[in-house]
Design a binder for these strands. Structure first.
Lengths: 131, 131
DNA sequence: CTCAGATATGTTATATTGTTACAATATTGA
DNA sequence: TCAATATTGTAACAATATAACATATCTGAG
């Protein structure tokens, strides 16, 4: 399916991530799109850049991997900071949003004159199934 | 100087990071320790593994870099979640701790049965000097 | 002391992640 | 139509990290 306004490569990458339902590295995506004509990492990274900029995909910094947004219909970022709980056992990623967190951080950092642009919150641990 | 209980390589890496006063990539550390006999990345990564495990050094996931703990005297982790404000302009890193944040996250995730093991909080933005 | 186990270090090669530079193609609108 | 723009293709490379194995050093039991 894939959201509107995406180019062919962007749609391919987005579909692959959405179908996977979990995080994939750029090179996993590349390997999975060989049959669709993908040959070089740049094809993946360029698509990811756009998808991340649009909030359709998130980068997991502690994993160097990418995951489809859990609710691409709403503009991600409009409902508080985006955070991820990542299970170290099964690899499942749970995306959530937390206004309190965002307010706390803004208040704390605002007092120091720091202007946040992008906030990374990733909690690594064990999910309910693996605990 | 360097804390007690460190081996030669660990002390060299720790001193280098402490002296730098800011984040360094593993390969920057390697290059800076050539004169001390460092030849291969593994020498750096092994030292970093120990230093990070001991809480003397933190890894900045969004930067793939490492920084000396701002207060190695106290065991890091005993005073709330460790977080970093990272200036996108000057590269300065401000380490801070926030109990509220930690409680919020624990409460929120605990309700979902998720057991946190390590939490990454990195706020990228502009510091007071660069804003 | 001494020597065996454990720890730390050294070295080479390789895997993984990400970017630069440039060429070709496709799209769009005046 | 055709020129400007956006997108895609390709090759080479840079940066980050680990695997596998060899050597050296340290430490404690005998």
């Amino acid at each position: 399916m894939s959201a509107a306004g995406l180019t062919k490569n962007q749609a391919l990458v987005f579909d692959k991530l959405t179908t996977a339902g979990g995080p994939m590295s750029a090179y996993q995506i590349l390997d999975n799109l060989r049959d669709d004509g993908f040959r070089a990492p740049l094809q993946v990274y360029r698509a990811l850049d756009k998808l991340v900029a649009d909030g359709l995909v998130h980068k997991l910094e502690s994993l160097n991997a990418f995951v489809a947004c859990a609710h691409p219909e709403e503009k991600c970022g409009s409902h508080g900071l985006t955070a991820f709980a990542i299970c170290n056992s099964c690899g499942n990623v749970f995306e959530f949003h937390h206004h309190g967190l965002e307010h706390d951080l803004e208040h704390f950092l605002g007092a120091k004159g720091f202007k946040p642009e992008k906030t990374v919150v990733e909690i690594r641990g064990k999910c309910a199934n693996c605990a």
